[in-house]
Simulated assay, not measured.
Amino acid sequence: MTTFIFLKRLFLAIFAIYLLPTFASAGWWALQDRPARWSEANWGSAGILPEASQSDEAAVYVFSAKTGGLKGAVASHAWIVTKEKGARTYTRYDKVGWGSPIRRNHRPADAFWYSNRPELVTKITGEDAQALIPKVEAAIAAYPYAEPGGYTIWPGPNSNTFVAHVLRSVPELGAVLPPHAVGRDYLPDGAFVHLDQDGKDLHLTIRGLIGLSAGVRSGFEVHFLGLVAGIDVMRPGIKIPAFGRIGV
Rank of each mutant, 00 (worst) to 15 (best):
A146V: 00
A139N: 11
L225M: 14
S218M: 04
R245S: 11
T205P: 10
A242G: 03
G183K: 06
H223T: 00
P155C: 03
E147M: 11
E172C: 01
D94C: 03
T2D: 14
A87S: 15
P178T: 00
T22A: 14
L209V: 14
E51W: 05
V176Y: 09
A214E: 03
I133A: 14
F112C: 03
P157H: 07
H165A: 04
R37L: 10
Y61T: 08
R9K: 14
G208L: 09
S100A: 11
W154A: 08
G219H: 11
K83E: 11
T91K: 09
D33R: 14
A139I: 06
L227H: 14
G208C: 09
M1D: 12
R88N: 10
Y93C: 02
A58R: 09
A129P: 15
G72W: 08
A59G: 11
A75K: 03
W154L: 10
S55P: 07
V176L: 07
T82D: 14
R245N: 03
G183L: 08
N160M: 07
A30Y: 01
P157R: 06
L173M: 11
G183E: 11
V193T: 13
R103I: 06
G211V: 02
P50E: 09
L10K: 02
E147K: 15
S213E: 15
V222A: 08
F162I: 02
I246C: 01
L70M: 08
L70R: 09
H165P: 06
R217A: 08
R107L: 15
S218I: 00
R92K: 08
P50M: 04
E147T: 12
L195A: 13
L209P: 09
W28G: 00
V228K: 07
T91Y: 04
A30L: 06
D128C: 01
I17S: 05
Y90E: 07
D128M: 08
